[in-house]
Design a protein around this nucleic acid. Sequence first.
RNA 1: CGGGGCGUAGCUCAGCUUGGCUAGAGCGCUGCGUUCGGGACGCAGAGGUCGCUAGUUCAAAUCUAGUCGCCCCGACCA
Length: 594
Amino acid sequence: MRMSRLFFETLREVPAAADTPSHQLLLRAGLVHQVAAGIFEFLPLGLRAKRKIEAILRQEMERIDGQEVQMPVVHPAELWQRSGRWYAIGPDMARLKDRNDRDLCLGMTHEEPVTDLAASMVRSYRDLPFMVYQIQTKFRDEPRPRAGLIRVREFTMKDGYSFHRDFADLDAYYPRVYEAYYRMFRRCGLEVVAVASDTGMMGGTMAHEFMALSPIGEDTLLLCDACGYKANRQIALFRKPQLQADPPAALEEVHTPRCASIEDLAAFLSVSPEKIVKAVFMVGKLAVEGDDQQAQERLIVACLRGDMELNETKLANALKCRGLRPAHDSEIRAAGIEPGFGSPVGMKAGAAIVIADDLVPAMSNFVCGANKADYHLRNANYQREFAAAVVADIAAAAEGHACHACGQPLRSVRGIEVGNIFKLGTKYSAAMGAAYLDEKGASHPIVMGCYGAGSDRVLASVIEEHHDEAGIQWPVSVAPYELVLVSLVSPGKEEEKLVEDVYQKLAAAGVEVLYDDRNERAGVKFNDADLLGFPLRLTAGPKGLKTGTLELKIRRTGEVRPVPIDQVVEAARQALDEEWALLKGMLDQPFPPM
RNA sequence: CGGGGCGUAGCUCAGCUUGGCUAGAGCGCUGCGUUCGGGACGCAGAGGUCGCUAGUUCAAAUCUAGUCGCCCCGACCA
């Protein structure tokens, strides 16, 4: 490709709308163009990189016997009504009507169509197992798109679905997917970790999220360097301290003016937050037995040791509730509780569900709210002053907490979720009638797994991980071009033929070469080459050409090698091999166990 | 949906507080010339309904109200 003809632009200045490195570089390098919040156009260079990522995803899916299909972006409501998600999902789903006033929606994911597809085609256990996947556009009307391609509304996802006759077969297949996922991200030059994740509203038993570690990541992960435990903060376990029980002392009311926060209170009373029980007030819909539609909103009083934070995912799972939100002060007062000085002690009976973190019953003589403005209680004790309807682990793990498995301190890092794999089970097959007949003629719902990976998000994550001050440093596997040939010869000069010849030779040898034949100054071309981040830059200047020499520069290392003009193909090949070897090295590292 | 910020030339921004005359700069763009290995220089140019709509006023980029859009923090994230 000749750069003089390439549809692109590079921006010298950082666009005001972009904060994160990948967002800035995506725009500055002319890879994408934003159309609306969370909706982007891919320009030629960006699309080439994305296509390379997708090619890798395809290859890894084929390796584990995936077969590519394509499902629609627009779905009839009926599919989602059958699974129940038409009603369960809120405004994140874009809904529309066709000319006959039929309800449609834009696919946020494809469990429904794929399950329907399986329902219509699978009859016998002999048809199982199989896995189909697609690379398709999804639309989720995110409340807040952000960080360029990291969180968008319209995006491309590789999503795969496997179908099995029983859990044992799914369990046997799942590790193959796990390994394929490590392979595909590493082949893209992304260092990822798989963490155990919440199964949430998707239903299912086991799930892993593949996380690209990055400070701009939206998820918090807890990792144990000692034993290898890894989990999303949403479900991360930790070992609670062993407390020794002091003999109960007499309850005492203390005046604590303006001490509505744990910090203030601890400072005012000169006690450690570990001697305080705090109450967090939430409202959530609790499912009424057997009828999901009748879910009632209830006030939830969650009690935790003062130094710990509530983990809403754990809370939601413990109470089997959804739609959790912080309670309004009026709702709290209605239960006879004073916001800022609240506790279950003396609250209106039955006005709220009290849930305590499992550390709370082990505490003794603690401080808690008196449900009276500017007053707290000292020497409160569990059971004596209050008891919870539910005791469960609802505290969020944090940096420094003890690993639940080995007791060593956990480390907290941020991650971008680039993929997730999921044992779905029979949630969708049962709801949508995807069943098969076994050897004895008995009907069973098909057991499913689902496996997603966002190609745009991978692209952004690769840039997050591979860039410097000057621009992108593409891993060779996803670079839009492998090499940029920079001509410093003035157009029309005799030497231009030599450079042209080099271009032809490289292209004929199968090197993906972008030929910078523009009539620009050297500085402009070099800066663009750095910004665009091709792994190799081959410079042909008038001085060098006199002695038949070009200059090969490695973007990643900055290393410069002189190359005789008759050896450019070999030199490029060798340098590219070195780049590929680097990725191969990553790929050959053992994968962390599940 | 709560909180904050921003909409002026293709890009980055100044001007707005204290209303006033042809609305500015840098970069980019066009033409000519000189340059030519890390974002050159000179000369000449093109380019803006100041997001939109109402209002106040003799007069609005500037004040007021509304509205749309974008960004950031939070909530949400199937």
